[in-house]
């Protein structure tokens, strides 16, 4: 495979209201943390460009509304996603249960092609933790997801989370590509909007893989 590839991935953030989805994405893409933001009603996205082992990756991270009521709109948001970050609040047991619902739904709707991350956010409030680390990690493993602990406030664990996720998505994409190369349908890749585009000489902002943007 040529090194000059640009991967475009769509990642969707899901999770109960007020667990910190918006804060995570804001921290990751703009390195900001701000207590004064508004409830997310309209799903929106931020983008991030990465360079991972010489390969360019364009990430579009979709932030969604958390309230259960907005799940009705979920399919519009997560369709064509390559990855999903399922966020819960470590101080809120309930939000962890909601993650499980999302896992079920995504597996059902998108199958195993989607890379799942389960993220316990707000570890700065670890003293109020209500979700045990072991439970969370073993659950994640049981559903083929990776588990992370993050704090958007302290900027902990976030780079790692997205970097890992990108690598996994690249692997998936490459696997699909190989399958495609074997003459099979290209549907698997295109269906989920993976675009592997020959690289135009575009100046990628030197956002090396780990530059905390």
């Amino acid at each position: 495979l040529a090194a000059n590839r640009t991967y475009s991935f769509k990642v969707v953030l899901l999770g109960e209201g007020c667990v910190g989805k918006t804060s995570l994405v804001l921290r990751y893409c703009e390195n900001k943390f701000n207590d004064k933001h508004i409830t997310t009603l309209q799903a929106s996205f931020l983008t991030k460009k990465l360079n991972i082992t010489g390969k360019r990756v364009n990430l579009a991270i979709w932030d969604t509304a958390g309230q259960e009521r907005f799940h009705a709109l979920g399919p519009i948001y997560y369709r064509d996603s390559n990855g999903a970050v399922l966020v819960y609040d470590v101080t809120d047991e309930d939000s962890f249960q909601k993650v499980k619902n999302w896992v079920k739904e995504l597996r059902k709707m998108l199958g195993n092609d989607i890379c799942l991350c389960i993220v316990g956010n707000k570890i700065d409030l670890d003293k109020d933790r209500h979700v045990s680390v072991e439970d969370a990690e073993s659950y994640a493993e049981s559903v083929g997801a990776k588990h992370y602990h993050t704090s958007a406030k302290l900027n902990k664990g976030i780079e790692e989370l997205f970097l890992d996720l990108c690598k996994r998505m690249m692997e998936t994409a490459q696997a699909e590509e190989r399958a495609k190369g074997n003459g099979a349908s290209q549907s698997a890749a295109t269906r989920r909007g993976v675009q592997i585009v020959d690289d135009e000489p575009q100046a990628t902002p030197a956002g090396g893989c780990c530059s905390s943007g």
Binding site: C29, E30, K32, K36, Q42, S44, L46, D63
Partner: peptide, 14 residues
């Protein structure tokens, strides 16, 4: 703001 990344609502803060 950096033109590429930002959502307006949030951008509001800045």
């Amino acid at each position: 703001k950096p033109e590429l990344f930002h959502t307006p609502t949030r951008a509001g803060h800045s």
